[in-house]
Design a protein around this nucleic acid. Structure first.
Lengths: 345, 345
DNA sequence: GTGAAAGCGCTAACAG
DNA sequence: CTGTTAGCGCTTTCAC
């Protein structure tokens, strides 16, 4: 069956859509008898209001547009999960899209979401979006909240509001822990210079070593490109074939760390006795690998929830979120891959 | 700035919305001069058509509603990824929701999606939705395609179209492989009786053993409830403490299999030399655990793509998908956890 | 207490 | 070549 409208009900009851609408909304103007008849007919035909018509009327769609670089990572889909929890509770739906790390696709999606009249746009941008800040600035509308998650995008004029995890503190705690465990030659398998996230973690690494008067060996700082297990594997082999060898690896993420672990085990090193490994994110894989991976937990689910709540506070309570920055606490998760003291040397 | 409409442009140019609309659509009726003026004004004000208005007009939203039990699993988010690829290519957006395995929430979401005028609804239902088939049947509309993925839901009257992976053949191949590797006492850590998926895999297990004249030991068939690593761990301990012990485990999914592996290693068994382990799904964790897990690959991404394509063929080419059943090929992925012959005994 | 009409933004049939 | 009008489904102001 096609869809039943107010008009259909009005026709059936020989009345008008206005009356039917009012009756369904329990308007005091409508007589009881009419109300009964209308409601009965509505129930009979299983009438449901057309949200599209309501959107058009009220200029509110009760949907948010969300853009992910990918959903193929536990960290990302956990953020989405958190978002869905909060959005669902508030009666909002999420339109979800992937940019596949393509900044042009990101810009296109933002435009499309505007055309769809979403009530807000949330984005977990690719690193490269920062190369398009002028274009971004040009398409951004200030009547629809726009929130950046997990990264910092800075189009110059103003700061876009963002939510990130406190990677600096998290990384400092991680390096502290490695030092406490007695590791002194800590390598850093880092992300690209163009990534705000990678820069922050790298700075934390440098600062913490310096604070503890541990010399930094530039040869121990090595760049990732694909952020895969395979790359971690290769980079670890590379580093371990050098003149001086690291005795610990601080990695940009968990999957790279697992690649590093596998290479080390392959080469016959014992983890954590000889070499310690530390990941980043606390994604599900860090629990199931062997040895289980120490890592810095990013509160993905909470970040997802918080981002929706922030948007809602803007929409419902008119709170200004421009320039707002929310930095969420990380926590160090110590597992076998770095817990020398537990295992013994 | 608020949003610019045809009306605004028409007012500025002292003409009407109809003319503006036609000019923007390059209607041959409109004079070139007018076209230029309209387009210039549109560009100047960065005019974008309002999709909500178009939806109302054409009764098409170019959105699909997708319901997942959870997105917290690699298998699920990979299906979503596949869906997004195909949907994006066809100009469709996905509204994504989680039911958290709650069948009532599933029914509610279906209703809400209808109200939103999605062009189709896709669902990866919870096992329990099968207890609500009458209610489901009552709310289902036949003017909007409805596709079940990963499970079979059967409301009696008609068969809802579905897409699944060919778990029966997949499981048979898996058991065959275990037998080939010389395992004879194969335990099955299975899912609930109420789950169509679990029943199929269980049947494949029984049939394959029977086909090879290997006796079935009922004590080796054990049920999962939470499908977690922890549960796998416990169930393996339980099974290995029995009178006769299995020499292989065929598990309902990868994470349970990893729990089983960890318990076995913990108890001092060597995998795969003494005991083989086989998972199901080929989720990302099966690559990173130690030993890496043999498993039955479900073509999640392809299932996602295919489901969108199927819907599109219904919408665009009017193909009838009622009663349609698509069963997609699995493939056996042999890794260390069951590859006795490679490793030697 | 109920109907008529306008309007949300857009398209298209119909006029001229 | 361009304007008028109706209509998608709904709410709401204004009449009666």
């Amino acid at each position: 069956m096609g869809r039943i409208t107010l008009k259909d009900i009005a026709k059936e009851l020989n009345t008008t859509v206005a009356t039917v609408s009012r009756a369904l909304h329990n308007s005091p103007e409508i007589g009881n008898e009419m109300k009964e008849r209308v409601k009965a007919a509505a129930k009979k035909h299983n009438y449901k209001p057309n949200q599209t018509a309501l959107s058009l009327k009220y200029q509110r769609s009760y949907t948010f547009g969300v853009i992910f670089a990918t959903l193929q990572q536990d960290y990302m889909s956990t953020i989405l999960h958190g978002m869905l929890l909060a959005a669902s509770k508030a009666g909002y739906k999420l339109i979800v899209a992937e940019s596949n790390y393509n900044p042009k696709k990101e810009l296109k999606l933002i435009k499309e979401f505007y055309e769809m009249n979403v009530d807000a746009i949330l984005i977990l941008p690719s690193r490269k979006l920062n190369m398009y800040t002028e274009k971004l600035e040009a398409i951004l509308r200030d009547d629809i909240p726009f929130l950046v998650i997990d990264k910092v995008i800075d189009p110059g004029k103003r700061h876009l509001p963002f939510i990130t995890s406190d990677d600096y503190v998290g990384a400092c705690e991680g390096i502290n822990h490695l030092l406490e465990q007695g590791y002194r030659n800590i390598a850093h398998v880092r992300g690209l210079e163009s990534s705000s996230v990678a820069r922050i973690r790298h700075k934390a690494y440098l600062d913490t070593l310096e604070k503890h008067h541990v010399p930094v060996n530039d040869d121990f700082i090595i760049y990732c490109n694909d952020f895969t297990r395979e790359e971690g594997f290769e980079l670890a082999q590379q580093l371990m074939s050098g003149q001086t060898k690291p005795d610990a690896f601080f990695c940009i993420n968990d999957i790279v760390a697992i690649g590093v672990q596998q290479a080390l085990i392959n080469m016959g090193y014992r983890i954590p006795q000889e070499i310690g490994v530390l990941g980043f994110s606390n994604s599900d894989i860090s629990e199931v690998c062997t040895p289980r991976l120490s890592t810095i937990h990013q509160p993905a689910k909470e970040m997802g929830k918080k981002s929706i709540k922030l948007i809602l506070s803007n929409i419902n309570k008119g709170k200004d979120i421009d320039n707002k920055r929310i930095v969420m606490k990380t926590s160090l998760v110590i597992r076998e891959s770095s817990n020398r003291k537990l295992i013994g040397r």
